Structures are given as C-alpha cells and as structure tokens.
Amino acid sequence: MENSQKGFIPVMLTPFLDNGNIDFTALTQLTEIYLQAGSSGLFANCLSSEMFELTDRERIQAIKHVLKVVDGAVPVVATGTFGGAISRQADFVKEVSDLGVEAVIAITGLLADENDSDEVFDENVFDLLNQTDNIPIGFYECPVPYKRVLKPQQLSNFVDTGRVIYHKDTCLDLAQIKEKLALTQGHKFGLYDAYIVHAVESLEAGSAGLSCIQGNYFPELIVWLCDHYNDSSVAEEVKIVQQFLIDNMDVMHNVYPIVSKYFLQKRGLDISTFTRRAVGNFSPRVMKAVEKLFDDYTSLRSELNIQVYI
C-alpha cells in the first residue's frame, strides 16, 4: 500500500441476493471489475460493504472470497475492529490477518468513545498494536458510529511505530492532508483520500491515491484520474473529470449504496439492489437521477476513450 505509484483503492460493495444472503457470484464479478479497471488495491469489509450488517462469519467469508479472486494480483486490506474491549478487537484483527490481507484496518470511531480524549484514544491504539504482534495496521476515519479524525501529529506518532502502513482519510481538509503527508514522509505508509472534491489537489500534494465511493460507479474513471492528474497533455480533461465528480456528488451519495448497485446494473453487472442497511427510499426520482448519471458518464468515457470491463 505504500508504493509510490498513485492508485485507487475501491471501498468494496457487498452484493446480496434478493433473499439477503451474500451473492458470491456477483462478488466475484465485482472484484474482477475493480481489477480490470486498474485498481492498485482493494478495501474489503468496509462501510460500503455494509460491514456492520454482516456477522463475523460473513465478514471472514467475504474477505476470504475476495482474496481468492484477487489471487495476489493487488494488495487487499480489510476491517478488523468492531468495538468492545481492545483484547476482543485484537483477537479479530489476528483472525482477519491470518486470511492473508496486506493490512488490517482499525475503525477510529471504535477505538474510543466519542467523548473520550485523544489521550484515551492514543492509549487504546498503542494497546491494540501491542496485542497484535507485528500485524500491519491501517486506519479508517469511518463516519459510523461517529467520525473521529486523527490529528496530524497523532497519525505521525502511530506511523513512527513502523506498524501503520495505510490510512483512509476523511477529514475533508486539504491543509490537514498536507500536514499529515509532511509528518509521515519517508515511511512505508500510504494515505488514501476519500474526498473527491479535492482529489487532484490531494494527489498533487503527495497522497498515495484515492479511496472513494465514486469508484463503485466508475472505477476506471478514478484510476484514470490517478494516472493523469499531473499530465499536462490532458490538463483540461483532468479539470473536466474533477468537475464531473463534484457536480454529481449528491446523486452518488443519495440512498447509497442502493444507487451504486443500480448503476452497476446499468453497466451490465448481474447485481441486486438489495441492501441490509436502511438508507432511504430508492424512489423514481432517485432512479432517474442515476440514469442521467449513467448517460453523462457514458458520454464522458467516450470522450476520454476509457475502456471498460462491462
């Protein structure tokens, strides 16, 4: 995850059958789509995967399945902390690590209560590190159950241990991103930005790549942006792509991930829009907005001559 090549790390969806069970056939096809698009890694068992609606057994099954499909082609990271005593979280971190992931992701909002101080949080992080041998760890500033954003010096202190190699940042603040990058420079560590609004600026500042929900609509477009953000020959096209992503943020976030699954249906993936998480009403108005997004993307993709798997 710490390689110098700018890359896209998809936050993977979990396809379900209409009866609510995991659709492993669709999960295979979806994983292949991410790979064919040129993703440089995968983030399995994350919020987009509806990880809080999965049982521990299903989490392990899904991660194991993704690893089997990937077969070493790219690194895979996966969440391994789901609350409770640090010792309990450490046990599941070890279980996830044993599957063969590159790093196990710790949810910042589950390592301390919302009202706990940074000192309590830091103590819990170091406790987790001490209880998990030499397992590579990453952080995700997940908005659920609450969003705890790491301060730049905190992140630096954790990276200095040599154990933290990955961070999915959701601070939405480019100045903080730059400070985090400056303080962690020189380490085997990658910061992946989730905020598409400043994607190009974040890449220019030194982020290792992007890890955003937009990749669950058109992963090849996010890969294209990571590949060309600094290419002067397509500078105008980069601006167009960045603006396209900004202009469609509301559409892509509304009743997500139902909308992204519907978008993937439009692309040709045999995936149900079933979700276990209650995210709102997939109304005709929302559906129409997604269909317009699909049409607009199809035109943009054609203009950029981007190849797609489906």
Rank of each mutant, 00 (worst) to 15 (best):
D133G: 03
M51K: 06
L245D: 02
D160W: 02
Q243G: 04
Y262R: 14
K147H: 03
T273A: 07
N254W: 13
V120M: 09
S202I: 12
D173F: 00
D173H: 10
I33D: 12
L210Y: 10
Y146W: 15
L129W: 00
G38E: 03
E123P: 00
P10E: 14
N134Q: 10
A182P: 06
A199G: 07
A78V: 03
E123G: 00
F263P: 01
F126V: 01
A26Y: 08
K239T: 00
V241N: 03
Q185Y: 10
L293Y: 05
G280E: 13
A73D: 08
E50C: 02
I60H: 02
L203I: 01
G109I: 05
D296S: 14
P15V: 08
R88H: 12
F139T: 05
S87E: 13
N216I: 02
I9S: 08
K151D: 08
R277C: 01
P10M: 07
V259A: 14
I137D: 02
V259Q: 14
L300V: 15
N45K: 06
V164A: 05
L155I: 08
A37N: 09
V241G: 05
Y195E: 09
M249W: 15
D91M: 03
Q36S: 14
R301T: 12
V279Y: 15
T132G: 05
S211P: 05
G206Q: 13
D270I: 13
E2H: 14
Y146T: 15
I63N: 09
N19Y: 03
